[in-house]
């Protein structure tokens, strides 16, 4: 037998996981996402799961880069730690940073910014991140402990369209 084992629950039995620590910058996030995709491809993850992982992790990491570390350039100690653990149902993702806390209150939901296709000048250029993240993932939670933000979510093995997908398709 050669090469790394497939992801349990996807094809084979061997436990699979990945831990990365990278600077909280857009360029470092891009490199980390490439490493995740290469790892998932090696592990035999299907294209759909790989695509959802890329989209969800991009939005989650961009949020940290933009909001947890709002200073530009970010301080040299501004890092993101990413843990991915595969299990029978899919991937459990944990992202940790030591940036600012989210404002108190419930996490943003699936709401998209208002959109009028006829009003070119008024088209929204942002506000999509959480809607995209919610659509790609399940069981999102955010906690704050010892100065650390801990964002967790699941990427199910099989894509089950959420309410947002049903509305738009």
């Amino acid at each position: 037998m050669t090469g790394p084992g497939p992801i349990p629950g996807v094809i084979g039995p061997r436990p699979w996981g990945l831990t990365l620590r990278f600077a909280a910058t857009p360029v470092a996030v891009r490199a980390a996402l490439s490493a995740v995709d290469a790892g998932l491809a090696d592990a035999g993850a299907p294209d759909d799961l790989r695509a959802r992982a890329q989209i969800a992790l991009a939005e989650a990491c961009n949020n940290i880069v933009e909001h947890a570390y709002p200073r530009h350039p970010p301080p040299t100690e501004a890092h993101i730690r990413l843990d991915i653990a595969a299990d029978l149902g899919g991937l459990q993702i944990t992202l940790r940073d030591r940036g600012r806390a989210m404002p108190d209150g419930p996490l943003p939901g699936r709401e998209l910014p208002p959109l009028d296709p006829g009003d070119i000048a008024g088209l929204p250029e942002g506000g999509f991140g959480w809607a995209i993240l919610r659509d790609m993932t399940r069981a999102i939670s955010l906690s704050r402990r010892n100065g650390q933000n801990i964002l967790r979510f699941r990427l199910p093995h099989a894509d089950k369209p959420g309410p947002l997908s049903r509305i738009v398709t």
Binding site: A58, E59, N62, I120, A121, L123, E125, G126, G129
Partner: peptide, 14 residues
């Protein structure tokens, strides 16, 4: 394409 890229695409449209 992530949400930042999408925002840039909308900005380009404008």
């Amino acid at each position: 394409l992530d949400s930042s890229g999408l925002g840039a695409l909308v900005g380009a449209r404008k």
